[in-house]
Amino acid sequence: MSVILQIETATTSCSVALAIDGTVAAFKQVNERNIHAEVITLFIDELLNTAGLTYNDLDAIAVSCGPGSYTGLRIGVSTAKGLCFALDKPLIAIETLEAMAYGILSDKAIAINSNTLLCPMIDARRMEVYCALFNHEGVMVRPTAADIIDDHSFSEFLNNHKILFFGDGADKCETVLGSNNNAQFLPAFVNSAVHLTQRAVEKFNNKEFEDVAYFEPYYLKDFIAGKKAL
């Protein structure tokens, strides 16, 4: 039996899930800016108490590792690494965009066929997004990149495929790409630790673990601090 604690803090969503043998037993999340550090450890305590488990009952900790919010990623990865060090448990890292794609693939209400591509998008700034493309089986067909979206974005794929755009970066792209009949936008998608479940248990079974001492979030771009307005 595998008991995996899953942490997602790459966007405005702060989410924690507890998966037992690849099935989510409990989860807790809130979609609000600048609240991650305040609630993440409380959420973890609540999940373990609800499940009647202790920290020592965990077999591994999985974390959404980016790209995404610099601060959010630091909080999530630091929490995961701290638990791994303290409990001597393995660390599993899952790219945020990949987890988002698996979240859509697991939603039976969304029609997906072999000609459908998935494009998870995370808001960067202005018209820039972090994004990638996945096929109907969750295989990456276009690597993760920081893209500035314009009228020609994804044109080579939109000519022959329906693309589902989703995530907090997709909303601002709809006005630019929405006129294409092959572009479909999925509203109200929220990143969740639940989306890590399938890849987390696969990596656990294959012993695909990170070096806790040296692991860092996947920022994709260097952090640039802004100046506070006077």
Rank of each mutant, 00 (worst) to 15 (best):
84 C>P: 06
155 S>M: 07
185 F>Y: 05
168 D>G: 07
114 S>I: 01
151 D>N: 12
184 Q>W: 01
229 A>D: 09
219 Y>I: 05
100 M>P: 03
97 L>Y: 11
19 A>V: 01
107 D>L: 03
75 I>W: 02
191 N>P: 01
6 Q>I: 00
171 D>A: 12
218 Y>W: 00
91 L>A: 08
14 C>Q: 04
211 D>Q: 12
20 I>P: 00
198 Q>H: 10
74 R>S: 08
125 R>Q: 10
81 K>D: 04
207 K>E: 15
104 I>L: 13
39 V>D: 01
152 H>Q: 14
132 A>P: 09
54 T>R: 10
208 E>Y: 00
201 V>L: 07
131 C>S: 14
9 T>D: 06
62 A>M: 06
110 I>T: 10
196 L>Q: 06
17 A>M: 06
121 M>H: 04
113 N>T: 14
86 A>S: 15
55 Y>W: 11
52 G>A: 04
109 A>S: 15
58 L>F: 11
170 A>M: 08
84 C>E: 08
222 D>F: 10
127 M>Q: 13
87 L>S: 02
172 K>N: 10
214 Y>E: 00
212 V>I: 15
69 S>C: 04
48 L>I: 08
91 L>P: 07
144 T>S: 11
184 Q>P: 00
27 F>W: 11
215 F>Q: 07
40 I>D: 03
198 Q>P: 00
210 E>N: 04
143 P>D: 14
207 K>C: 10
105 L>P: 09
35 I>C: 14
128 E>D: 14
224 I>A: 12
195 H>M: 12
51 A>P: 02
